[in-house]
Amino acid sequence: MSTSFTHIFNGDSTAEAYAHSGLEGQEFVWREMVVQGPSKGIPGQESFFGPRRTYFQKELGMSAESYYSLTEEEWHRMAGASRRGEWVLWYEYDVFCQFNLIALLAGIHYWDNPPDRLSLICVGEDENHRWNTLANFSPDQYPKLLDTRKGLTHDDLLYAATVWEAFIQKAPLGLLPFAQTPHPSFPYLGLAIGYYLRQFPQAHNGLNTLEDILLQEIAQSPKTQPQLIRQVLLQRNHPFGFGDLQWMWYMKKLQPLWLQEDDHLSLTNLGKKVLEGDTVYREHLAGRHFGGATALDYIWEEDREEIRPFPEK
């Protein structure tokens, strides 16, 4: 008897490639970015969707109707689908994907009847130590990717739910044990947690690692905003995995640190001082949340590669 598949994709581009792969099965896309903004409650329930809907509306300009149709309604369709056969999750190694995956699995964990079988495809480092995303694979390679899937167990769902519970706490320190102890079913989660914590401001200038990257690129040579985003997305060797929407949000928050003349960006005097570490800039942190934590309450020590409360308790 042939296996019936239900596929859950990390984004629309993966779903589009799958549509041309010749593979069959139900298809769903989990459209979220839980690594930015406040997260509470159980994914798939109103305790989760309420704060996320508000965040997308106020910070990213997405209407409540759009968030519902793209994310909430898709989740409800997925939750109402047949649990028979095998459910396959298509994901990548980066921060963006890993935390969306954890949210997805945590939500499934709380279903009364989980799928008969659950498996994961997670692309990352290959045998030549190159980092791959699903975009590196053509649709005709998807059947071979499907053969690389690994089964997930009830214990794996419980583990994901436990990580999620740590993620939504006010103190991000609870994530550290999961970063320090590798898990065979989630080999890239530790890396993702380490870079997730780098979203908190650095002690020496108030910027996080992502914001430092943006300002460094502006300082190196004049660029238009599209050139800057393309440079950051395509040529920087980092595992954040963010798209242009998130980078543009960061640019908006950093606007006092850069200016635009003839469509090209340069740093303001304040921006230069902040980038050099001569000034600590924290004005952009008010109201910013990561998971259950607020950005103003913790700082990232790059030299020590550790996070600690701010101010010192």
Rank of each mutant, 00 (worst) to 15 (best):
L214V: 07
F99K: 05
L210G: 10
Y110N: 04
P51I: 07
P38C: 08
A293R: 10
G41L: 01
G241F: 15
P38N: 09
R77W: 11
K58Q: 15
T268V: 05
E27V: 09
Q216G: 14
T153H: 08
L23G: 09
L215Q: 02
K150T: 13
F48Y: 13
E16H: 14
C97S: 09
Y110M: 02
F96Y: 09
T294R: 14
M33F: 13
Y159W: 15
T209Y: 12
H238Y: 07
Q45Y: 13
K170H: 14
G44C: 12
E74N: 10
W75L: 03
W249A: 15
W75N: 06
L157E: 00
E217Y: 08
N10V: 05
M78W: 12
R31Y: 03
D278I: 08
N136P: 09
E59G: 00
R304Y: 07
I218T: 04
Y55H: 12
I299R: 05
M78N: 02
L175V: 04
P182V: 10
T71L: 06
Y159N: 07
Y159M: 10
H284W: 14
Q169E: 15
H7V: 04
G11S: 11
E276C: 07
Y188E: 12
Q169H: 10
N100V: 07
E72T: 14
Q141D: 08
R84P: 00
P115N: 03
E24V: 11
L210M: 11
S185W: 04
H289A: 09
T71Y: 13
M1V: 14
A286N: 11
D303S: 13
T3D: 11
V274L: 02
T6D: 11
T71M: 09
Q235V: 01
H109G: 00
L191C: 07
E283C: 04
A166T: 03
F167T: 02
L157Q: 04
A286T: 11
H154E: 10
F240L: 09
D244A: 03
